[in-house]
Design a protein around this nucleic acid. Structure first.
Lengths: 251, 251
DNA sequence: AAAATAGTGTCTATGAGACACTATAGT
DNA sequence: ACTATAGTGTCTCATAGACACTATTTT
């Protein structure tokens, strides 16, 4: 559009140069990351123990403030890298939590992301310090949603800081719903896997047993799996063939 | 947790009182609303023509800055009310757009919401001035996603300001995906409607013809429709029975 | 009566679940 | 040989699509 300069319109260029962001309220913006994995029939989340107030010593999701020149996804990847040393992780925006009062310090809006990490990588976290995977307890079925709790090694419920139980719940709800039409299961497996492993991932996410025959047929008919010809090793029964995902569909 | 005060820990209360939000970068946060309706076999979106720079005179979604003490959903409802006078509208968070550079003034993060409004209400907007429904042209099938264009009365493509074509595209993708498992169709209809009207809404959203028999069976089997006993009027053929949605499932 | 759509009944094709059977590893 | 799981073939059942038919309004 032509920027005609008139007495009432000083022109776009001038206005942009004169623009004062402080004419409108400014907010603190953070990213929280729900990094999920599957193991032993349960979902696990990467949790840290807070070192400072508020919620000092309480369990929380990794998070941090968003820099002025990084995109939201970059901020999430940076924070996940800082906590785990992992790069190139499946990471997707989840929801933005902005209720006034969700943080007792001041109003902080959190753009939540979720990540899917296979258990093998989850075991080799760079910073062996605070972050650790903790088992989830999902107190609802299907995709009804709601907060999700975390358990310590003895199976005791641990409280979560801020609204992080809601964020985790939203992440579980999202991947349950998404699993029906997007093959995200392989994000939680090594690059080579058996159909049984894939089925166990699905069963863990959905928290329900699936029919073996029908699951095999669906997966093989999807055209997204490629047989490698290799076989499982070190199992005390007939070894299964290993498959790879053909990542033709953009994730 | 007991707030033990030690030489290295001044206590939670003190820290919260001393908290300085300016220790971290602060951002401009806005809400943009994609208000959708269906009519004449197409999706329509509520569009305004910008009165000021940047993108002066270009078409855009209604939006505004988020107040310091309102929730994100409240901000979206306030802005939709300001533009349309409509209250109690189906409104749901869509995605947060935060790429640096998406707004030429300064970095502005936009939490996008989408609304579903039945065509009847769309015709009686309070402020007869700027906001108007414009027809959408969706250049992709299914839920592949991508930007969506708007058409003027003559069917010419109009440019959209900022990343609003992407926001609209995300909204269309979302409702297409959601329609398969959540009955959102009735949000685009008056409270009483025929099965044919409902099918037309589905066909418009999905942009594909549906099988009449199977659609009827699915809808009636869902248990979400209640026959009213009333019939259509002023149609030049056998009148259809009218139904209501039983909103037992929380939307 | 003609036109147009509403609504019902039935056949068929497809896909999921169930089950039986064979195959192949370790012990 | 025994056990455990992999993998195949087949039957059944539920649901979607197709189609034929009847019903009810306006013109």
């Amino acid at each position: 559009m032509t920027a005609n300069i008139t007495p009432t319109d000083p022109g776009e260029k001038t206005l942009l140069e004169r623009y004062n962001p402080d004419r409108f309220p400014r907010h603190s913006l953070a990213v929280d990351v729900a990094a999920l994995s599957t193991f032993d029939g349960d979902l696990w989340a990467l949790i840290i123990q807070r070192q400072s107030h508020p919620f000092r010593e309480i369990m929380a999701l990794p998070g941090g403030f968003i820099g002025l020149d990084e995109s939201l996804g970059q901020a999430a990847a940076r924070i996940l890298d800082r906590e785990t040393g992992l790069k190139n992780v499946f990471l997707e925006q989840l929801y933005t939590f902005g209720d006034p009062g969700r943080d007792p310090r001041t109003r902080i809006i959190a753009v939540a992301y979720y990540a899917l990490i296979d258990w093998e990588r989850m075991q080799h976290l760079k910073s062996q310090g605070h972050p650790m995977p903790l088992r989830l307890s999902v107190p609802w079925a299907g995709v009804s949603g709601g907060p999700v709790q975390i358990l310590d090694q003895e199976g005791n419920l641990l409280p979560l800081a801020f609204d992080h139980a809601e964020i985790l719940g939203m992440a579980v709800k999202r991947i349950r719903g998404k699993l029906d039409y997007v093959p995200i299961g392989f994000q939680l497996l090594p690059s080579c896997f058996s159909l049984r492993q894939l089925q166990e991932v699905h069963e863990t996410i959905l928290n329900q047993k699936l029919n073996k025959d029908s699951f095999r047929r669906r997966m093989l008919a999807s055209g997204l799996l490629k047989a490698t010809g290799e076989l499982e090793e070190d199992v005390d029964h007939r070894p299964a063939e290993l498959y790879r995902f053909t990542r033709k569909s953009a994730i």
